[in-house]
Simulated scan of single mutants.
Amino acid sequence: MKTAIITGASSGLGREFARQLTDVFPEIECCWLIARREDRLEEIAREMVGVETVCLPLDLCDSMSFTTLQEKLAAEKPEVAMLINNAGCGYLGRVGETETTRQTRMVDLNVRALTAVTNLVVPYMPAGGRILNTSSIASFCPTPRMTVYGASKAYVSSFTVGLSEELRRKDITVTAVCPGPMKTEFLDVGSITGRSPAFEYLPYCDQVRVAAGALRAAKAGRTIYTPKLFYKFYRLLAKVTPVKLMVKFTKT
């Protein structure tokens, strides 16, 4: 049975990935949904008609969640055709002025959890498998007041490119989607709403379109997918402009 695993599936972009998954990958027969909120997962599962769903209420900031996932993988030995690493968080605030637990949570979830889940799942992926990682435009350039978040997403994009080369011989592709801000609960949870001038004037991405585009990019085997022409240009600008100069224009 061809299986997909989606982390951070309870809301926002993760929820859209779950909703649109079989539109792009109709061969998927089963989907494991991972997030902390079981009630949200069950609600999404009910919407996924025609696909067997498994809800795994795991907190990926807790190392025991990796043990639980490892044991389930070993017991069921699924054929994982698709892994979507969407779980992540971001908080606005300067280093030294923000709670340490908030800063380290971004590292734990955006970096550590993504790496652990990928390492656990890859052995169960056959040739033709796809991995889709949620990165961000923040990965293109350091972002003051979201320094840790930007650095964590730079890791996600770099990890994606390196892993893509590693898994090429296994015919497994790896894609990173790098969207701009979206009107999801991410902004409220991260204490960003109303506190960042940059987020007031930046063009917002639509999560429905981002999910659709990212899934298509993964199917095509693209390594980096950036929605919206504005952010494609920003990515190019970040490549050719000195970092210190770019940082002056990325203050949030």
Rank of each mutant, 00 (worst) to 15 (best):
residue 5 I to Q: 09
residue 9 A to S: 14
residue 10 S to T: 13
residue 13 L to N: 11
residue 14 G to M: 12
residue 14 G to T: 08
residue 15 R to E: 15
residue 16 E to K: 15
residue 20 Q to Y: 14
residue 21 L to H: 09
residue 22 T to F: 08
residue 22 T to H: 07
residue 23 D to P: 00
residue 23 D to H: 13
residue 24 V to Y: 05
residue 27 E to D: 15
residue 28 I to M: 14
residue 31 C to T: 15
residue 32 W to T: 08
residue 32 W to R: 10
residue 35 A to P: 14
residue 40 R to S: 13
residue 42 E to C: 05
residue 44 I to S: 03
residue 45 A to P: 06
residue 45 A to W: 02
residue 46 R to K: 13
residue 48 M to G: 07
residue 48 M to V: 04
residue 48 M to K: 09
residue 49 V to R: 10
residue 53 T to R: 00
residue 61 C to N: 12
residue 62 D to L: 02
residue 62 D to I: 06
residue 63 S to M: 06
residue 64 M to F: 04
residue 69 L to A: 09
residue 78 P to V: 08
residue 79 E to K: 14
residue 80 V to D: 10
residue 81 A to V: 08
residue 82 M to W: 05
residue 83 L to M: 11
residue 85 N to W: 07
residue 88 G to C: 06
residue 90 G to V: 03
residue 93 G to P: 04
residue 96 G to Q: 07
residue 108 D to Q: 15
residue 108 D to S: 14
residue 109 L to C: 02
residue 116 A to L: 03
residue 125 M to P: 10
residue 125 M to D: 03
residue 128 G to N: 05
residue 130 R to A: 14
residue 132 L to M: 07
residue 134 T to I: 15
residue 135 S to V: 02
residue 143 T to R: 01
residue 148 V to S: 02
residue 155 Y to K: 07
residue 158 S to P: 03
residue 158 S to R: 04
residue 168 R to F: 11
residue 169 R to F: 08
residue 169 R to I: 15
residue 171 D to W: 01
residue 171 D to S: 14
residue 178 C to S: 13
residue 183 K to H: 13
residue 186 F to G: 08
residue 186 F to M: 13
residue 187 L to S: 06
residue 197 P to K: 01
residue 204 Y to K: 12
residue 204 Y to I: 01
residue 205 C to H: 05
residue 207 Q to A: 14
residue 210 V to C: 13
residue 211 A to T: 11
residue 212 A to L: 12
residue 215 L to Y: 02
residue 216 R to N: 13
residue 218 A to P: 12
residue 225 Y to N: 10
residue 230 F to R: 04
residue 232 K to C: 06
residue 233 F to T: 13
residue 234 Y to E: 11
residue 234 Y to I: 03
residue 235 R to L: 03
residue 237 L to C: 05
residue 238 A to F: 01
residue 238 A to I: 00
residue 239 K to W: 00
residue 245 L to D: 00
residue 248 K to D: 04
residue 251 K to D: 10
